[in-house]
Computed example of a mutant assay.
Amino acid sequence: MKREQDIEIKDELIVRYLAGEADPEEAIALHDWLALAENRSYYEKVEAAWNNAYPAKAPRHIDARRAWDKLQGKLEPTAEMWTDRSASRWKSVWFRVAASLLVVMIAGLLLYIRIHEDKIAQVNISTLHASQRVGLPDSSIAILYHNSTLLYPQYFGINKREVSLEKGEAFFKVTPDKELPFIIHTSVADIKVVGTAFNVALQPGGLEVSVKEGKVLVYTANDSSYLEAGSTAVIQAASYTIVVKDSVNTNSWGYATRQLVFKDLPMREVIADIEKAYPYSIRLSDKNINNCRLTATFDNDSAENLVNLIAETLNLSVAKNGNVFTLEGEGCP
Rank of each mutant, 00 (worst) to 15 (best):
M1W: 06
D6A: 11
K10G: 14
E12D: 11
I14N: 01
A19M: 15
G20C: 04
G20E: 05
P24S: 04
A27N: 09
L36S: 13
R40F: 07
K45H: 06
A48H: 06
A53Q: 12
A56T: 08
A58E: 13
R60F: 01
H61G: 11
I62H: 00
K70S: 14
L71M: 14
A79K: 15
A79T: 13
S86G: 13
S88P: 00
R89W: 11
R96M: 14
M105A: 15
G108L: 08
Y112L: 09
E117H: 08
T127V: 02
S139G: 05
S140V: 03
I141Q: 08
I143M: 05
L144I: 06
S148H: 09
P153S: 12
P153I: 07
Y155D: 04
Y155M: 05
I158D: 13
N159Q: 13
N159L: 07
R161N: 07
V163K: 14
V163D: 14
S164L: 07
E169F: 02
V174M: 12
V174C: 10
D177H: 02
E179L: 12
I184M: 04
H185I: 04
S187W: 01
S187G: 09
V188M: 00
A189Q: 07
V193E: 04
G195K: 08
A197C: 09
A197W: 06
V200N: 12
A201D: 15
L202D: 07
P204G: 06
L207M: 06
V209C: 09
S210G: 00
V211H: 03
V211R: 03
V211D: 10
G214T: 05
K215D: 00
N222L: 14
S225Q: 12
G230V: 04
T232D: 05
A233Q: 04
V234D: 05
A238S: 15
Y240F: 12
I242R: 01
I242N: 03
N251C: 09
S252V: 04
Y255M: 04
T257K: 11
D264I: 02
P266H: 10
A272N: 12
K276T: 13
A277N: 02
P279R: 13
I282T: 06
D286I: 04
N288V: 02
F298D: 04
D301T: 10
A303D: 07
A303K: 06
L306M: 11
N308E: 06
L316H: 09
V318M: 09
A319T: 11
K320H: 01
N323Q: 09
F325Y: 15
T326Q: 13
L327E: 12
G329K: 08
